[in-house]
Design a protein around this nucleic acid. Structure first.
Lengths: 152, 152
DNA sequence: TCTATGTAGATGCATGTGCATTTATCGTCA
DNA sequence: TGACGATAAATGCACATGCATCTACATAGA
């Protein structure tokens, strides 16, 4: 019985590219935001989720589920967002432990301005380099690496 | 003249998947290393480059070129690696400012033990989920996103 | 009802990161 | 040679992150 735990050369190469490219792309996008005097990507992720959630807002633990942030990370990120007036923390009626986070008008505005820059980065870094078919192929392959794997 | 700066839905989806999957995979690999009582991935990257460089070692600025770490990051990472006895800092003859970093026997051993865990993560997370052809397709697509784009 | 266990979220402390600046040396050109 | 800008690497300081723990409330079970 031979040991088959080690990855194939193809797997190693795909992994290495994935690591390198993703770091490069994040860095580019972060740079663009910084350049525009805007908050970091992490803020966008949270504001985006909250904007999608609408007036009902989201509980912090729901943000943890939707994003990949750790609990303490969300806790502090929300504190900063609140300090900047981008979100509001509301007590929740039927659970005295919890709170509901709702995006504010200023938060929506900040998100909009971030998207102007972030979206352009995505368009340049990804949209301009691969055709729509290739982008779909990439999404499909990445979806299979997700945990749990994506359906489509 | 319409504004065409914003990304297509295909680009957005590919970007989102790339961000999410890469963070998930990094986290899984980091967890596995931590689980095994081993240093974080960043240490592996540096030890790997140094091991490939052989006895000649590498200058810190060469590590910066090969990896995606910032200068101050490399400086401190090397300080930690040296403190742990995994690398040696040697003065370089023809440049009094610089130093050459060489991996030690202990460093090679640590790298080997890290690879046993890291390699298994790659095999499980990537190698087991896509066929060799799919892995090659993924590598090719990611290569086109690299800056500068990969040849192969 | 009282107690134990579980879950939501915050926080103290150690460590890591980002930014700007510093120190030391190099190379060039007057 | 001496002055000056460029490059190699380190570091002070502010801020962010990870880990463990803590507080507060909720739920279930005796």
């Amino acid at each position: 019985m031979t040991e088959r735990a080690m990855p194939s050369p193809e797997a190693i190469k795909a992994w290495a590219r994935l690591m390198r490219v993703s770091r490069q792309l994040v860095e580019s996008a972060e740079d663009a935001l910084k350049q525009g005097g805007l908050p970091p990507l992490a803020w966008y992720d949270v504001l985006h989720e909250l904007a999608e959630a609408g007036e009902g807002g989201l509980r912090p633990f729901q943000l943890i589920e939707r994003t990949l942030f750790a609990q303490y990370n969300i806790s502090r990120l929300l504190a900063r967002l609140e300090a900047d007036g981008l979100v509001e923390k509301l007590p929740v009626a039927d659970d005295g432990r919890g709170q509901t986070i709702r995006i504010s008008a200023k938060g929506r505005e900040t998100r909009r301005r971030m998207w102007a820059v972030y979206g352009r980065s995505i368009a340049e870094l990804v949209g301009a380099r691969l055709s729509p078919d290739e982008l779909n192929a990439l999404s499909a392959l990445l979806g299979r690496l997700r945990h749990p794997p994506a359906e489509d």
